[in-house]
Amino acid sequence: MPTEWATFVHNIVTQLTQENVALTYDLNNVKIAVPGSPNDNGAEKAQWVIDGSITVRGTRGSR
């Protein structure tokens, strides 16, 4: 189930960032359609393209 995988990944990322572990995501031509507003029903969407890496780093007690 996708929701089970999403929960699993969320829990691992949360745990690792609390342990001061850096996570690097390498993205290749990822396209995201972003609505103009939360109430956008079928209106045109902006397209964001991500090509590169994103690093997420956390520290214990950083909340």
Rank of each mutant, 00 (worst) to 15 (best):
I32G: 01
G61N: 05
N41P: 03
V13S: 00
P2Y: 11
V13F: 02
N41T: 13
Y25M: 14
T59R: 05
V56W: 05
W5E: 15
I12W: 10
T3R: 04
S53K: 06
V13I: 12
P35M: 05
T24V: 09
K45H: 00
I32A: 06
L23H: 05
A43F: 12
N28Y: 06
V34I: 14
R63V: 07
H10C: 13
V49C: 09
R60Y: 10
I54H: 08
N41H: 09
L16Q: 01
V49L: 03
H10R: 15
I32S: 04
G52P: 02
I32E: 01
E44M: 10
K45A: 00
V30P: 03
T59A: 09
V56M: 11
L23M: 13
Q15E: 09
N41I: 06
G61T: 02
G52K: 10
E19S: 03
F8W: 13
G58W: 00
E4V: 13
A22Q: 12
E44F: 08
L23E: 06
N41S: 09
V13H: 05
I50H: 02
L16A: 05
N20Y: 04
V30A: 08
S37D: 03
P35T: 01
T55P: 03
N39V: 07
S62C: 08
L23D: 06
L23A: 07
Y25R: 14
N20A: 08
A46T: 14
P38W: 01
P38T: 03
N28C: 05
T3N: 06
P2H: 12
R57K: 15
K31F: 06
H10Q: 15
V21W: 00
V56K: 06
A22Y: 04
G61F: 01
N20S: 14
A43W: 07
P38G: 03
A46E: 12
P35H: 00
A43Y: 12
G52E: 09
Q47I: 15
Y25A: 13
G61S: 04
A43C: 11
G42M: 01
T14F: 14
W5T: 15
S62R: 12
L16W: 00
N39R: 14
A33F: 06
P2I: 10
N20T: 07
